[in-house]
């Protein structure tokens, strides 16, 4: 017998869980997080066209300060050489370098990241300051061949695949709110990770779905993203 998982059975709740329920979401446990597994059938096909997933409950953390690059290096973090680029660690944890001395880390699609766990509790060196990115920023994943066209309706940056390459970062304004957008393709599927003000999550979700409707985009669950990664 399958166990029904409720988005409110843990303390960490996405502000979107009511909207997910309205869309008929089935939730699942991903690591320590509960997120939407799926809303309907064949979401992989949807993900290839245009999908929007809420990953806000998945782990992430940030660090900044003059000591951050050296300290992170000593902790085994593989860092991009230049700001506004990202790298993927061995376990697919995303490390985004937002400035010379600032990093944003986001877990892989299993919802767990040993690296984030380790760094969260590690003794920090002088001038290294932890940032509560899991709390301050929401995390959405916009994917599919129409993702760049969708972003063009809400943002002034050219996100087309041939101009905005994989693991490139834009720190910009999206639908009039600040956002960090990282291109993180999943398998061969175009994907943009969008980190933005956590308290504006419902607004951003609605704005993106509105922009997506022209391209028949819709919400998808985390499982579809994971399936894209393995295809």
């Amino acid at each position: 017998m399958s166990v029904v998982i409720s988005p409110t059975q843990t303390l960490r709740r996405s502000q979107l869980y009511r909207r997910h329920r309205q869309l008929g979401a089935d939730f699942a446990q991903f690591g320590d997080s509960i997120a939407v597994d799926h809303y309907g059938d064949d979401e992989v096909s949807q993900a290839r066209v245009l999908g929007l997933a809420d990953l806000s409950t998945l782990p992430r953390i940030g660090f900044k300060g003059l000591g951050t690059p050296v300290w992170a290096d000593s902790c085994g973090v593989k860092q991009p050489a230049q700001p506004n680029w990202a790298t993927l660690q061995g376990d697919n944890t995303l490390v985004a370098r937002l400035s010379s001395n600032e990093l944003l880390l986001a877990s892989n699609l299993t919802g767990s990241s040993k690296l984030i766990e380790t760094l969260a509790t590690a003794t920090r060196a002088h001038r290294v300051y932890a940032l509560p990115r899991g709390d301050s920023h929401s995390w959405l994943s916009l994917c599919g061949e129409q993702a760049a066209n969708t972003l063009a309706k809400v943002c002034a940056i050219d996100f087309r695949a041939q101009y905005f390459t994989n693991l490139q970062i834009a720190q910009t304004s999206l639908a009039k709110i600040n956002a960090v957008i990282v291109r993180t393709d999943i398998g061969d599927n175009l994907n943009y990770a969008i980190f933005s003000d956590s308290c504006s999550l419902e607004y951003l979700w609605d704005s993106l779905l509105d922009a997506m409707s022209e391209y028949r985009g819709r919400a998808i669950g985390l499982q579809a993203l994971r399936d894209c990664a393995t295809l």
């Binding site: 709740r13 502000q15 009511r18 309706k153 809400v154 639908a175 009039k176 709110i177 003000d197 308290c199 504006s200 419902e202 607004y203 704005s207």
Partner: peptide, 14 residues
């Protein structure tokens, strides 16, 4: 057309 009006909601909003 299609102006954006950002809205912030606390986690307790609902």
């Amino acid at each position: 057309g299609r102006s954006f009006y950002p809205a912030r909601r606390s986690n307790m909003h609902h």
